[in-house]
């Protein structure tokens, strides 16, 4: 389908769709969407990565599906149609996780199911997929899912390192012999409030680097 389009597959516009969610238009730090799951699943790196991949796949595919049938969806019931598509995708992903990474699926518990209510998904479908062609919508979904995932990975990396002393389950701090010097894991980093503080710090950092994000007073 790409060759018949007038613009190339990865035109500057499409590339922008892919890269903008990492910085200027990050779903978590700029649009402040999907915060609840970012707080809940970022205690360890592994579930965070799985969650990030799940959200990326669900966003991308539902964007694609909705964009493909955007002209046939009656305006009045579009939210219901979007929800059906998202829910289908989420159930597929959930079943897949249960089949192949059962332990992670256990850790993520309800949060995979709650992807359905993740604001990023509805936001992308309403704001982008309903008004754009399938291919850009797909790229937009990948970009937003990955931008969400990036924050998840950064936060969970910090929380796992300082809260449990491990990186992806590997006991780094113990191997470094840090505990012998009297170091202890920080219990507060494991608590959800710390994830909120970390996300806040990331927003602070991003805004101090990119002044265009700061609101005019």
């Amino acid at each position: 389908m790409d060759k018949k389009e007038k613009e190339p597959v990865f035109s500057a516009k499409n590339l922008k769709l892919l890269t903008e969610p990492f910085g200027k238009n990050n779903p978590i730090t700029v649009q402040v969407l999907g915060i609840c799951s970012a707080l809940a699943v970022t205690v360890k790196l592994k579930p965070a990565i799985v969650m990030a991949l799940s959200v990326t796949i669900v966003t991308a595919v539902s964007n694609l599906v909705i964009a493909a049938m955007r002209k046939f969806i009656p305006d009045r019931i579009r939210i219901i149609v979007q929800l059906v598509v998202i829910a289908t995708m989420v159930i597929l992903v959930d079943q897949f996780l249960k089949a192949y990474v059962f332990d992670v699926s256990k850790q993520l518990s309800v949060f995979v199911g709650l992807i359905i209510t993740n604001c990023i998904l509805m936001g992308r479908l309403e704001a982008f997929a309903m008004a754009n062609k399938p291919w850009p919508s797909f790229i937009d979904g990948i970009g937003n899912g990955a931008g969400y995932g990036l924050i998840l990975v950064v936060v969970s990396f910090i929380r796992e390192l300082f809260g449990s002393g491990t990186i992806y389950g590997y006991p780094v701090l113990e191997k470094l012999g840090l505990y012998k010097t009297g170091y202890e894991n920080n219990g507060m980093v494991i608590l959800p409030p710390m994830a909120l503080i970390l996300v806040g710090l990331i927003i602070w950092f991003q805004r101090s680097r990119d002044k265009s994000l700061v609101e005019k007073q």
Partner: peptide, 9 residues
Amino acid sequence: AFVFFSYPA
């Protein structure tokens, strides 16, 4: 509060 929640021991 930071010490209380971080290092309860």
